[in-house]
């Protein structure tokens, strides 16, 4: 979208490369040339298939599914995958149902071309699944696979025929949260706030710290439900899954559903005034303190 390649696609390409076969990428949209150029250079990509048509505005699954099916008919892929983003989760199950196969969501590991690992129960159990379908359809957890290099590849591109518009759905508008900070799911450092922040205004404390660390800002469900910050900042089972090098949880108790979204972070820091908060059980460094004092101090101390 916006003529830019979504970073999670690079993680999905790495996952696809692990299958050992030839990797093709399908680029569909209203204006594909820029992304096609980018993705042709990505390491590991053999072929880029391009479908440009006005009906792909808004990437509606009702329009994209026939395209994917048409492409599948032509090339007979053994695997079809996408990043487990809102886009991938929306589209791939629809494709799978049309192929009459059971898809596999949000995989974290590929054991072999038919055996995949994924988490269940909010990340509290790890399931190994063998897929005996003729076509394996799956989405890939971006944080579990490195991004493929955007250089060194030399894929050929070919046009594929756009499908007949189905016209049963229509994209009206998008309201994106604007921010200069790095994107949450790929940021190296994430600073997150919870109910302990007490108001949306107080999130400014986190923005200040985040700016010093070049970090993205996330939130717990409590902070989102209380209206402190927009939904797309939610980290957890039903929000975003992040695995940054450093995750700083401020005023977050650490409910199961929140931990599901961040417990694969390399280093976890918790700042909470309740020493019994469950977040301390997963934190590498815990500071029992009043966040309204500790966070400004930390912002000041980072520069020293």
């Amino acid at each position: 979208n916006n003529e830019k390649l979504t970073p999670i696609t690079l993680n999905a390409i790495t996952a696809a490369s692990k299958l050992g076969g030839e990797v093709s990428c399908l680029v569909a949209g209203t204006n594909c040339s820029k992304v096609v150029e980018e993705i042709s250079k990505v390491q590991g990509v053999k072929k880029v298939l391009v479908a440009q048509h006005d009906s792909y505005k808004g990437f509606l699954p009702e329009e994209l599914t026939p395209l994917v099916l048409g492409t599948q008919k032509q090339f007979n892929f053994t695997h079809i995958c996408a990043g487990a983003s809102a886009f991938g989760k929306n589209l791939l199950p629809r494709v799978a149902a049309k192929l009459d196969v059971a898809p596999i969501s949000d995989i974290i590991e590929i054991k072999s071309p038919d055996t995949f690992v994924r988490t269940i129960y909010a990340g509290n159990a790890v399931s190994t699944v063998k897929c005996n379908e003729a076509v394996k359809v799956f989405t890939v957890r971006g944080t579990s696979f490195e991004a493929a290099s955007m250089e060194g590849g030399s894929a050929e591109s070919a046009d594929v025929t756009a499908a007949e518009p189905s016209g049963v759905s229509e994209w009206l508008e998008q309201n994106l949260t604007k921010s200069d900070r790095p994107e949450l799911t790929s940021a190296k450092v994430v600073v997150s706030g919870g109910r302990g922040l007490k108001s949306g205004d107080n999130f400014k404390l986190l923005y200040d710290l985040a700016d010093k660390l070049n970090a993205a800002v996330g939130a717990s469900r409590a902070a989102v439900d209380a209206g402190y910050v927009p939904n797309d900042m939610q980290v957890g089972q039903t929000g975003k899954i992040v695995a940054p090098e450093l995750y700083i949880a401020v005023g977050i108790s650490g409910a199961i559903q929140h931990l599901a979204g961040m417990k694969d972070s390399k280093t976890i820091v918790a700042i909470n005034k309740d020493p019994e908060a469950p977040i301390f059980q997963v934190a590498d460094y815990g500071l029992v303190a009043d966040l309204f004092k500790a966070v400004p101090e930390m912002t000041a101390a980072v520069d020293k």
Partner: peptide, 28 residues
Amino acid sequence: TSRLEQLRVDEPPQRQAGMKVETVDDLV
């Protein structure tokens, strides 16, 4: 009929217990 087979279910890797720090300076 299902063509998916759950081979096994495991506990996720447990994180090692961390440490508590006393001050912000110590943390940074």
